[in-house]
Design a protein around this nucleic acid. Structure first.
Ligand code: MN
Ligand code: MN
Ligand code: ZN
Ligand code: ZN
Lengths: 145, 145
DNA sequence: ATTGCAATTGATAATCATTATCCTTTTGCA
DNA sequence: TGCAAAAGGATAATGATTATCAATTGCAAT
């Protein structure tokens, strides 16, 4: 059993939640998949392994994964929430191509420090932030000229 | 006639769009209101002046205002898109209190420069970005201790 | 192993902001 | 004034997510 599964089981136990086949399967498939995945995409993968699972169960399991600290929501503003691994996957921001949709994960420690400083200069205690950088990747720039 | 109205009329003319009472009223009310306003909030204000206006018209007019460069969308991730003035209201980011929902508009020129640099280091040409800083304002911090 | 029961599930209906549709009313211009 | 195209209002549709509810299941105590 890997560490994420362990965390999940501990979380279930601590909150008097039950360990079900559905939850195990959804967790397993979520963990196997790197990157950003929507509830529907995850549902499609889950269905392949067990067509009897309903999509409400996938939504419910994702909520659990977030509460357990294993998943994190990403909102690219296109009306669909995506999920990514949180365990061993520290905070980062996203660089998104407006041409092809490709996304890169980026972090700049100077920006992070300045964000904190800006917030404090207004009397805020910063808890978290979201930063989305939009532009055109190298490929897309070459195509359009 | 103020400058924004002028821009709007030029835009209508250029695109063979018609100058209607509804559009004028919606523009006027939008311009009077500072800050971030949702389509529904704007619709409520518009209804007070002319109850015969439908909310689809407000949505349609907001889209026009964006195309004309007079409005800009803000997505705080709560499922409702808000709109703010764009004319004479240059780019800025938002500092949001998780306690009371208060928002401040902030800009840090060093962060802006670094964002560009980060993007370029990945071969991206940055076109725009969104940055939301979340935390607790001074008031909310005092209340909770 | 069996039982009791709260937790869970799957199917389906409901939400809710935003869009599309469709028919009627205006607008801009000849 | 008349006409065609644009716009408006009412309302249905959309689509992701959430709520509901009857049937099933996990699990702890027997
Ligand atoms: Mn990511
Ligand atoms: Mn603003
Ligand atoms: Zn690209
Ligand atoms: Zn506050």
């Amino acid at each position: 059993m890997n560490e994420e599964q362990n965390i999940f089981h501990k979380y279930l136990e601590k909150h008097d939640l039950r360990d079900t086949l559905q939850r195990e399967l959804i967790l397993q498939i979520f963990l196997r998949r790197e990157g950003h995945i929507s509830a529907e995409q995850l549902y499609d993968l889950v269905k392949k392994r067990d067509p009897s699972i309903g999509q409400a169960t996938v939504y419910r399991a994702l909520k659990l994964l977030i509460e357990a600290g294993l998943a994190r929501e990403i909102d690219f503003g296109d009306g669909v929430i995506r999920y990514e691994h949180k365990y061993n996957h520290p905070h980062h921001d996203h660089l998104i191509c407006r041409g092809c949709g490709k996304t890169l994960e980026v972090v700049d420690s100077v920006i992070e420090k300045l964000q904190k400083r800006v917030a404090e200069s207004y009397g805020f205690e910063l808890t978290d932030h979201e930063m989305y950088l939009y532009g055109y990747c190298e490929n897309c720039r070459q195509k359009r000229q």
